[in-house]
Computed example of a mutant assay.
Amino acid sequence: MSSKVLVINSGSSSIKYQLLDVETGEALATGLLERIGQPVGAIKHQGPAGTTTLEQPIPDHEAGIATILALFAAHGPQFEAADLAAVGHRVVQGGDRFPGPVLVDDAVETAIDELSTLAPLHNPPNLDGIRAARHAFPTVPHVAVFDTSFHTTLPPAAYTYAIDRTIAKTYAIRRYGAHGTSHRYVARRTAELLGKDPADVNVIVLHLGNGASATAVRGGRSVETSMGLTPLEGLVMGTRSGDIDPAVVFHLQRVAGMTTDELDDLLNRRSGMLGLSGSSDMRDVHDAVAAGDEVARTALEVYFHRIKSYVGSYYAHLGRVDAITFTAGIGENDDIVRINSLAGLERLGIRVDAERNAGRKKSECVISPDGAEVTVFVIPTNEELEIAREALDVVAASGV
């Protein structure tokens, strides 16, 4: 069987893709289509011939997939459908229906559509990409890999909200988590770097990007995570508030007359670091702090405080922590965030070596001092490779 998998991550106005050789872990080609549905789309394809950039209309996801195939044909690597073991698709919300990746058929498409009520911004475009790709590759197995699947191992005490249980059951209200593909990849890679079986390792993964989440992983299984029913709960993010007293919503409805849509926009798109400091880009926040901006300084302190609170909580839940691992855009590139998020936790065996921590990290590394009780890593995430691996495993197990 071929070890090549085409991974597709379809958003509302974009499609990210990679052609991977799972056996070697090599990305044979990567690309990004943006501004789908707008008058002029932007296209970037990186393959054996180098980088190709184009601007042309991409009216919908069907046209987007057709454009991707044309890019492979013109700029390589060239392949036939028979060369693919699978097409792997990122899907954000699998609810409690999909504890793992699954071969896509019409029934799975229907289920993904029904779960859109839990992820209205993500599942519909994920499904658009699946449908377009199934049309383009009708003879290739398609596999849906869900962000929520890794967190289906959460115990009831972790995923249950303390609200009326009949209402919760009727409307599927519980904590589902997100970023599961990244957390799974990083937790497994952390164990490998420690030279241990994942079943023997407890790790706290800090996925810090514009969206941010923390996960406690015990023996390779997610046992607690910061995101909840939606990706709004948890850490302070680029534009999302993270944890907030629910009564804030009622208060703003009553005293400010804000509608549900206005509140949704406030908490998801105008809060977080943007709401606190005026910018969702952490580099701008650091520049403002360096220039003496006390508002930006407070914003950073809120950001650090929230991460530290989750680390302490997850340490308590795990009982023993072998490693803490930073990943994603901020986690990999922001040494100020890394060192300040763990400052003051030395009594827990958590220390960061300032020299090892300095600068952006493009490769896996240890940033804790030798002999530290808890090893602190920076590990660049590779969600596409994880999706490709899981897709290949599903196809192999199914005998398709």
Rank of each mutant, 00 (worst) to 15 (best):
D287V: 12
A49L: 14
S271P: 12
Y176T: 09
Y315H: 13
T181W: 02
E332Q: 06
S277G: 13
A27G: 11
L154S: 05
V249H: 02
S398W: 07
G242L: 06
G211C: 12
P155F: 09
E386R: 01
I324H: 00
K4M: 14
L20I: 13
T139D: 15
A168M: 10
S182Q: 04
Q18D: 07
P155R: 02
V295N: 11
N357W: 00
A63E: 03
I112L: 01
P125W: 02
L20E: 01
G64H: 03
G88A: 04
G11C: 10
I330F: 07
G219H: 02
L54W: 06
G41D: 06
E384I: 07
H61A: 07
A107D: 15
G278I: 12
E301T: 09
V255I: 14
V378H: 01
R189N: 05
A199V: 13
P57T: 15
R356D: 00
R184L: 15
F98M: 07
T170S: 15
V92F: 05
A172T: 15
I36L: 05
L33T: 06
L318S: 08
L19V: 12
V378M: 02
E109A: 12
A288H: 08
V7S: 02
G275Q: 06
A178K: 00
G177R: 00
N340S: 10
N382C: 11
F79I: 15
R97F: 15
P380N: 13
N126T: 10
S398M: 10
V92S: 03
G95W: 01
H305S: 15
V143G: 04
T325D: 03
V289S: 05
N126W: 03
V102C: 07
T139R: 08
I379F: 03
E114C: 10
V217S: 05
N126K: 04
L267D: 02
H89P: 08
N210D: 13
F79A: 13
H122A: 11
P198M: 09
H151V: 13
R131H: 08
K361M: 01
G31E: 01
A291E: 14
I15A: 01
G228R: 04
A168C: 14
A256I: 11
G359V: 00
D200Y: 08
V378I: 09
T190Y: 00
M227K: 04
A81N: 09
A136F: 10
S279K: 04
T153R: 04
A73C: 14
R270C: 07
L267H: 03
L348I: 10
S341P: 03
L54V: 13
E386H: 04
P138D: 12
V321R: 00
H286D: 10
R218E: 14
